[in-house]
């Protein structure tokens, strides 16, 4: 068996795929959040940033395809592993809650599916404009796409904002286990570092939650308008 097929055929190889694609996606989440936080700087920086992102279509689509590949691999591998894991334990115990396993670790797969649904909605909401096509037609004074206004409008629906915040809570849970777990899966953990990696993992989860949720909250609270 060659190393490449072992990477894909073995459970450990699949876990590397999970960890590495997860790391890539986590990187995107952080960069995406930092970019979006420019919302608090006002329309000018945000709209300029949006134009900058779209200025090199090759790069943009390259990045988009890359992300798509990461998402695809992350989900495909997760589904395969989960099916395998379910088959390994077909008969459940009388009491189903696994001993001492955290809530986050037990809900990783379902949380992941929920996040996928969120991503689809999020793209329909702000990228493709399926939710409200008029969002894409908004223009600012410099005749750029007014991303700032789109975001404010998007988050001014309390239901939509609540949905976003709830999804960020799921993401928080997903990351708080997933980031530390990725380190374990690629073998980058030992007794001394484990405590810190797990702690940092939880902190990062919360940071992403707070950072992302701050935007809809600020809109709802009328701080951003």
């Amino acid at each position: 068996m060659t190393s490449f097929s072992a990477l894909y055929d073995s459970t450990l190889g699949k876990k590397y795929i999970m960890a590495l694609t997860g790391a890539g996606l986590f990187g995107f989440v952080v960069v995406h959040m930092l970019g979006n936080l420019q919302l608090f700087l006002g329309p000018e920086p945000l709209n300029r940033y949006a134009v900058f992102l779209k200025s090199k279509p090759g790069l943009l689509w390259g990045a988009r395809l890359g992300l798509l590949l990461l998402v695809f691999l992350h989900i495909l591998t997760a589904v395969q592993l989960t099916l395998r894991n379910r088959a390994a334990r077909p008969e459940k115990y009388d009491r189903s809650k696994p001993y001492r396993a955290s809530y986050a670790s037990r809900t990783l797969f379902l949380g992941g599916l929920a996040l996928f649904a969120f991503v689809v909605y999020h793209l329909m909401h702000f990228t493709v404009g399926t939710v409200d096509p008029s969002y894409l037609k908004l223009r600012d004074a410099a005749n750029r796409h007014d991303v700032y206004r789109m975001t404010i409008l998007g988050f001014s629906h309390p239901g939509v904002s609540a949905f976003y915040i709830a999804c960020m809570a799921v993401l928080c849970l997903h990351l708080s286990h997933g980031v530390g777990s990725a380190f374990q899966s690629i073998g980058f953990k030992n007794k001394q570092t484990a405590v810190w990696i797990d702690r940092v993992s939880k902190i990062l989860g919360v940071v992403v939650f707070l950072g992302n949720s701050s935007m809809p909250l600020a809109v709802l609270a009328g701080i951003l308008r």
Binding site: M1, A6, D9, S10, T11, L12, K14, K15, L81, R84, N85, A87, A88, R89, P98, Y99, R100, A101, S102, S105, R106, L108, H177, G180, S181, Q184, S185
Partner: peptide, 16 residues
Amino acid sequence: KAMDEAGFGSCTNTNS
């Protein structure tokens, strides 16, 4: 390889 062939599940680091 032997572990996978025996039909055990994969590790999701729950630490149970």
